[in-house]
């Protein structure tokens, strides 16, 4: 019985042909499943919880009674403030092209974070302080789709690859409550809460989202148009005009800086059970959500 040329699955199945019949009686778990548990250290070696926390404290944690600037003569840790940083899980242009080719994304409509999360291929967990998608340039040469994207972070190469095909790209900031609503809209609507009012970006992100080179949603549109041309000259392609009706439709669907979902305004309540949308009438609510 020579099995060298077979894959592991075929090898296993070929061996099973010559072994006794598998039945309830001869099934067994792995030997590692029934190993005895290691007993913890006892006596003087046993550490208390506080000591364990010192050893296995989270990245960037400052423990102890004396502050870090007194205990260490060097600059702050590389991981300082890691737990508070915003995370942007990446997605490449290659993956985006694959999603479009396999029919999981419809390019006739603008694509935002809710659309990407609905594919279940791109995974986002707002509870881990993940604030949105970072579009990376991997696969930029093979990117042929014409899309209208709204992402949270994008490199210059990714922007160029999208605009070369006649598409458009906007980088937009969403606060964590808006991201939670976008990551799973159905679960959010089932909670019965009104659609939140999107907050302005924090101080360290304002510069990025006001920069027309990043296609920020707070940038001046005329400067963004200039940057479109500049980027095309940098990468050596001609800017296709945005006169396509699909593009016009996409231009109409630009989100307001306070808006979370396309076609839905903050303060509205979407009831999936009633198939109705409830809008606030109270003046204070209207004023709050429109401010």
């Amino acid at each position: 019985m020579t099995l060298g040329h077979l894959s592991s699955a075929e090898k296993a199945l070929a061996m099973l042909r010559h072994l006794p019949r598998v039945s309830v009686n001869n099934l067994a778990k792995l030997p590692t499943d029934s190993l005895p548990k290691k007993t913890p250290l006892r006596g003087a070696k046993n550490r208390n919880k506080r000591d364990m926390f010192k050893i296995w404290s989270p990245l960037g944690w400052e423990g102890g009674s004396s502050p870090i600037f007194k205990t260490t003569p060097v600059e702050v840790s590389y991981n300082y403030g890691y737990h508070a940083q915003r995370q942007y899980p990446p997605m490449s242009l290659k993956t985006l092209q694959l999603l479009i080719d396999t029919g999981r994304l419809d390019t006739h409509h603008p694509i935002d974070l809710a659309t990407l999360c609905q594919t279940k291929v791109y995974r986002l967990d707002p509870n881990l302080r993940q604030f949105g998608v970072h579009l990376t340039a991997e696969g930029m040469d093979g990117f042929k789709a014409k899309v209208h994207l709204e992402v949270q972070w994008a490199s210059q190469e990714a922007i160029a690859a999208v605009e070369r095909n006649g598409g458009s790209l906007v980088t937009a900031y969403f606060d964590i409550f808006s991201v939670k609503a976008l990551a799973d809209p159905i679960a959010f609507f089932k909670t019965g809460q009104p659609i939140p009012r999107r907050l302005t970006p924090p101080a360290d992100a304002v510069g990025y989202y006001m920069n027309p080179a990043n296609r920020g949603y707070l940038a001046d549109p005329t400067k963004v148009a200039e940057e479109r041309v500049l980027l095309a000259q940098k990468f050596g392609y001609s800017v296709p005009p945005l006169d396509d009706p699909v593009s016009q439709e996409a231009q109409e669907l630009i989100k307001d800086p306070r808006q979370v979902f396309y076609g839905l305004q903050p303060g509205w309540i979407v009831s999936l059970a009633d198939k109705r949308i409830y809008k606030p009438l109270d003046e204070e609510l209207v004023k709050h959500y429109n401010s």
């Binding site: 592991s8 699955a9 075929e10 296993a12 199945l13 099973l16 598998v22 309830v24 099934l27 067994a28 778990k29 792995l30 499943d33």
Partner: peptide
């Protein structure tokens, strides 16, 4: 019909 069988998984199912 040609998956790589894991007998321990079968055991855990029966258990």
């Amino acid at each position: 019909w040609a998956a790589r069988p894991r007998l321990d998984n079968l055991f855990h199912n029966v258990e």
